[in-house]
């Protein structure tokens, strides 16, 4: 039986993610774990998370999971969600500068800083909270059965700015078009919360459980 490991490093909505995966799991087994061995043995890995990136990175390092994540992204389908996406970049503007895992070149920026430079975005609230449209800029097995510009649930104050356009899989408009989804080899990483995005979100999680990591 194929196993999907949800990495539990004590931050946020792990249960919501595992419950949503179980809901669409079919033949897969969903485990929630912080054990390096269990993650390395799993067929697929999910890195969820909400909250502060600095705490996220220090907890991952404390548990020795940073190296496990580096290893996992090389050889199995890997899904990053929200903070679990931001953690993959080089660094974040959070707390005056936080070093992240450096798996995807680029940085994490604060929305308010960017919106201030756009006069037309006057009055846009931060956190960016609610159901917004996700515009797929290229085809990918993870988008199977999900309509172009489907709405997903977002709640975040920071967004990712990857160094290379080539890894941008989808964008979302909020004052400007920010990167909502990154795909790079076996990594698919989303800023929104599929586990809270009703039909579209469950469809994405279901696609992840059958995705072989290629595109």
């Amino acid at each position: 039986m194929a196993t999907v490991a949800v990495i539990d490093y004590g931050m946020g909505n792990i249960r919501s993610v595992s419950k949503a995966l179980e809901h669409v799991s079919g033949g897969s087994r969903v485990i929630v774990t912080h054990e390096a061995e269990a993650v390395l043995r799993a067929d697929r890995v999910v890195l969820p998370g909400v909250g502060a990136l600095q705490d996220c990175i220090s907890e991952l390092k404390r548990l020795g999971l940073d190296e496990v994540i580096r290893e996992s992204v090389r050889n199995k389908p890997f899904l990053g969600i929200c903070l679990g996406m931001q953690a993959l970049l080089d660094s974040s503007a959070e707390n005056g500068g936080t070093e992240a895992l450096g798996i995807i070149p680029g940085e994490v920026r604060h929305f308010a800083d960017q919106l201030r430079t756009i006069p037309a975005s006057n009055g846009l609230k931060v956190p960016h909270m609610g159901w917004n449209q996700v515009h797929q800029v290229k085809s990918h097995p993870m988008w199977q059965g999900i309509a172009q510009d489907s709405r997903f649930y977002f709640v975040h104050s920071y967004y990712v700015a990857p160094a290379s356009e080539a890894v941008v899989s989808a964008t979302t408009p909020y004052g400007f078009d920010f990167t909502a989804v990154i795909d790079q080899e076996n990594i698919f990483a989303v800023q929104f919360h599929p586990e809270k995005s009703q039909h579209a979100g469950l469809a994405l999680l279901s696609n992840f459980l059958s995705w072989d990591g290629s595109n």
Partner: peptide, 8 residues
């Protein structure tokens, strides 16, 4: 509720 309803 959270194990059956997938909205915030």
């Amino acid at each position: 509720v959270a194990s059956q309803v997938f909205i915030p």
